[in-house]
Design a protein around this nucleic acid. Structure first.
Lengths: 201, 201
DNA sequence: AACTTAACTTGACATTGTCAAGATAGGAAC
DNA sequence: GTTCCTATCTTGACAATGTCAAGTTAAGTT
């Protein structure tokens, strides 16, 4: 007999990563309720209880998946930022488009990380990437914060608008046949945002 | 023996309603993943398979719960509208506050109806109430639509901003200790919105 | 009084998350 | 090279869940 192609015991920690991969795939293929520890295990070619060594429970796996989501989220915004000029307005529009890129390309992960389910916020990976995402927002909004205004006022304004647009696009647009044809593009909203930040600044 | 206080067979359709009540309670007490057909049945005092007579499956119960959610959602906006003047700006701010009222008072239902899970959009109750919610938005935005602009441009702008704010408040604010203290009030964002709609009109 | 049917109940099955206990490989120690 | 150790799994069990099929009962109809 040949030796099995995947060694039965790996000492390199690849299983943990494979389980997250499997979880992401499951979410994509079966929707927000499709996550299953046992199926992730099966996909990774291990026994049903193997995940419990790497994750305390299914919430632990969910946190790891969410951490992956926030990482891809940062990547999407960074990619757009790298292609943008140094003009603040350009950079603001860039992260907004990056935000929407992420939601469009990974709708299952986007809905998952913003599902409201409790993740383990103390998890290193999770907090690192979710903090990084907010830092990108904060940096990009900086130039638009007028003196005497709290930075959060501008940050949450921008975040709310683009998040709401992305989230409604994913949750309500697709279900509402009347809206599909007339749904405005992101730029139609950014036009107003840019104006508000100009005159308000 | 006394006759049981709840008759074992009801012919008035109250069980269906009781099951939705139980589902709402379960969502509130156990979070977004806490819904269970068998527990709803137990709460309503019927056997574990009783719900299947009223709902095809758990997705059917979920749709009925979501319909209830959209109804409360409409109620929250209407309550604020009734207390507002006839000034368009007043009414716009009113529905935004109603939106946030609903999210604050029923966070579990708010997250549930915007969870991205597939509901049966052909369900009468569901489509009636979700359509009514959008109609309120449409009516209130009407006065702010400049000639030559698609109404949806304004509607989705307003909806995105308030939805994003409410949704982020429910999903990210509570988890992020750094943000809790500095989270701006809704009015801080509405100030910008009002200005954008003034000057843009 | 017999019949019909709406509104359930009972029982079974496969799937799930979780836990406890056992097994095994790969390296370290001697 | 044998013994031991420990990280990394496997096996087996259990209660809970959604779903289906079949049986039952009560409320009205005839």
């Amino acid at each position: 007999m040949m030796t099995s192609p995947t060694p039965r015991r790996r000492r390199d920690g690849t299983l943990r990563n494979d389980l997250v991969d499997a979880g992401v795939t499951l979410l994509r293929e079966r929707g927000p309720d499709g996550l299953s520890l046992r199926e992730c295990a099966a996909m990774a070619g291990v026994s049903h209880a193997a995940p419990s060594y790497h994750f305390k429970n299914i919430a632990g796996l969910a946190t790891a998946i969410a951490a992956r989501g926030f990482k891809l989220f940062c990547d999407a915004m960074t990619t757009r930022l790298d292609a943008a000029s140094t003009a603040p307005q350009d950079r603001l529009n860039a992260i907004c488009h990056g935000y929407l890129d992420f939601a469009s390309e990974h709708p299952h992960l986007f809905l998952f990380i913003f599902s409201g389910q409790a993740f383990n916020e103390e998890d290193d990976d999770f907090s690192r990437h979710s903090t990084a995402a907010y830092a990108i927002l904060r940096d990009t909004c900086g130039p638009f914060v007028p003196a005497g205004t709290a930075p959060e006022d501008i940050e949450i304004l921008v975040w709310s608008l683009v998040h709401g647009y992305a989230h409604l696009t994913m949750t309500r647009k697709k279900d509402n046949p009347e809206l599909v044809g007339s749904w405005p593009p992101l730029d139609a909203l950014l036009k107003h945002l840019n104006k508000a930040l100009e005159t308000g600044g």
